[in-house]
Amino acid sequence: VPHGPMPGYREPACDDPETEQAALVAVDYINKRLLRGYKHTLNQIDSIRVWPRQPTGEVYEVEIDTLETTCHVRDPTPLANCSVRQMKEHAVEGDCDFHVLKQDGQLSVLSAKCDSSPDSAEDVHRVCPNCPLLAPLNDSRVVHAVEVALAASNAQSNGSYLQLVEISRAQFAPLQAAAVYVEFAVAATDCVAKDVTDPATCNLLAEKQYGFCRGTFIEKVGGGEDVTVTCTLFPTQPVILQPQPEAPTPVAEADALGLEPVVQPEPEPLE
């Protein structure tokens, strides 16, 4: 029997079904609210505490590690079908803390706090000495590579003119002198790609249609540029308004749990 007063919480095992269920609801929550980048998947549950909540229910205080997948957040592919970014591709890890309310058998996220960080260059080169590393997204060579790749995609397209939404990922290929590998998100506009003279006259479609492009840009030694690019357009996604969980008043909630009253922000879209 532990010394001192019994804590107000219980600690199931991190691999218990109830713990994993709360963690999976939390991961689904962040993937629905990420504004940019890639979907994340559950990698490990670090810790769990379950607090009783007055008058009913329980609050799961759970800390998890996630790993980035290769699916962009706008990609409707189910998370289960998204590959985890491998270490040799320069993996990215997430570290998240959640409060998940369980009431009447339903789980809903009360608060979420996440940070993500790429693996270290040493770790990447330990598994693959010549693998490319992540490059800064605002590097001028990256921005130029994306502009050339998007222009090439629009030039060969019979469909809508695609507009850049975000540069999602970039790597400098270490062996080829000036090769840049880029991934970026796009959105369809109301212009036909081959007729566009002034892109500023094109507007995003009312019912947004996003897409995702992967390209390789090479600056040839004797001058000139080469680019290969493939873009995939996603089906238009009906806007589903997220039912906001009944967010309890944080202070009252904290008192009920005997926690420090930490004012949790409304569940905002996660950047």
Binding site: P2, C14, D15, A91
Partner: peptide, 29 residues
Amino acid sequence: KGVLPGIPAAGGPGPVIRPCPGRIRYFKI
């Protein structure tokens, strides 16, 4: 026989399985 959590009793069952952190589903970075 009462033992402190996390300390296997002498001659008792095998090592105590720590409840957390849980299993790693892919790899750690």
